[in-house]
Write a protein that binds this DNA or RNA. Structure first.
Lengths: 252, 252
DNA sequence: TGTATAAGGTTGTCTATACAGCTATAGAGA
DNA sequence: TCTCTATAGCTGTATAGACAACCTTATACA
């Protein structure tokens, strides 16, 4: 039996969700198998049925479970979706082209989160975050400006690195498991600072890729990559998972 | 006062959600303004507070509302962005924001493939292809320029449609199975024609999403979507497939 | 005038209970 | 043996009440 300890630090339904997710991730409950019913949760954890219902309902909305009235609650098969945007290390991409990667740090330190950054991190303004700004060059030409904030709780040693031999992306991928990703891609005109750092001609737009990463329901890092339009595009080619032409479920 | 009639055909919280959404879409409650508090809903609709809470909570999870403890519940600004990972119909995305979609055809006909287009279609220059150029508008404002070539062998009826009730994207998704996809995302300055069609101020860049679709090793369609930078972004959020860091029941 | 306190409204969570609709199964009856 | 029925368990929904945390505003006090 796993721990039945429910603390007061977090809401009960959150602790229930994490407990169930842990047992799914450990494959104790494999895809397709039944999980605890609401009444079983009520008995085993001494919570009310509404609280058990909330935990199971939210996990269902998040895609982990499927519920069938009159039958039970089951672990869902994780969706296999091809990713347009994999996390790829700029140093590796440049090396794969047979070119030379170099980088320099424009800023590195501990900062107070602005209201906008705090909202991205789902925390309060003034929270302390690691911050780094780097320029990545391909054969000496700037191709990427990296403006990254990192949650100190998730990567406490982040500031101790000099990022000469390893990029922040590579370090984080190797050291922090990622549960969820959010990407936003935009076009924009660079600010004067960005224009200077990237050595962009006046009038040339930039592509920005903004990424947030979660681990254990906590934002680990938020990063904005800025690429001069003429020097970089985002590309992907893949086979959609459901390419057997079944009309399928989605009617969005 | 709007209708207070709550029937028994649907769950109460669903009717409450639709009622609130309708008042948001009618601009009675504009973005940023406050909606009814839970207690006000309890009074006006004679439901319990838990039911009112469920309606507001789910609308918040769906991104329509934002809740601030101790203050109230507010209408959120709908994000202007399209899905990156899936092929989604712009008409549906606009409708999901509660806005009005319209479109007009700038060109439709049979054309000879230029060398560049022929290469995209893995065929010879001079091949005959269907071509369509459309402007999609959200509440009257141009948000997407669609410049699409279609293989007549894959969709022979394509030119017979007027694309008033269905977009080319929706038609092709429904009628041609897709085996493989290629995406390229770039930032660029619009050409004078594009600038005019999209009604973009001078100096504003655009985001372009170029997509090729294959079916049975044959290019079905190649399309270039152009979005004014200030009016649209591309977005995705998902859980990576390999997110099983089975640390289990620890308490990081 | 300025500051501390109290009050009231708001969301967030949790409990206990109830009823309805659905499903699988065991048991009764033909 | 087969069929129908009752039952138990499951999810879905809804109610009423309660306490906590938070924010704003008004009030009392120094």
């Amino acid at each position: 039996m796993t721990s039945l300890v429910l603390t007061q630090a977090q809401p009960l339904y959150v602790q229930l969700k994490e407990h169930i997710l842990a047992r799914i991730r450990s494959r104790e409950w494999a895809p397709g198998s039944r999980v605890l019913s609401e009444n079983e949760i009520v008995e085993q954890f001494s919570v009310s049925r509404m609280t058990a219902n909330r935990a199971l309902k939210e996990l269902t909305q998040e895609g982990f479970l499927a519920r069938v009235p009159g039958v039970g609650t089951f672990v869902k098969e994780p969706p296999q979706r091809a990713s347009l945007l994999e996390i790829r290390n700029i140093a590796d991409e440049i090396a794969a082209r047979g070119h030379f990667h170099s980088s320099e740090i424009a800023h590195k330190g501990l900062v107070d989160a602005s209201p906008a950054i705090a909202e991205e991190f789902e925390t309060n303004a003034g929270a302390r975050l690691f911050h780094i700004t780097m320029v990545h060059r391909e054969n000496g030409v700037p191709v990427q400006l990296e403006d990254r904030y990192v949650n100190p709780l998730a990567a406490p040693d982040f500031l101790n690195l000099d990022f000469a031999g390893i990029t922040p992306t590579a370090y984080l991928v190797a050291n922090v498991p990622v549960d969820e990703l959010e990407h936003t891609v935009e076009a924009m005109m660079p600010s004067p600072q960005e224009q200077a750092l990237l050595d962009v001609p006046a009038g040339e737009p930039c592509l920005t890729l903004h990424r947030r990463s979660w681990s254990r329901d906590r934002v680990v890092t938020a990063v904005r990559f800025t690429y001069p339009a003429s020097r970089h595009a985002l590309y992907s080619r893949y086979r959609p998972s459901g390419s057997n032409h079944s009309m399928e479920s989605d009617q969005t």
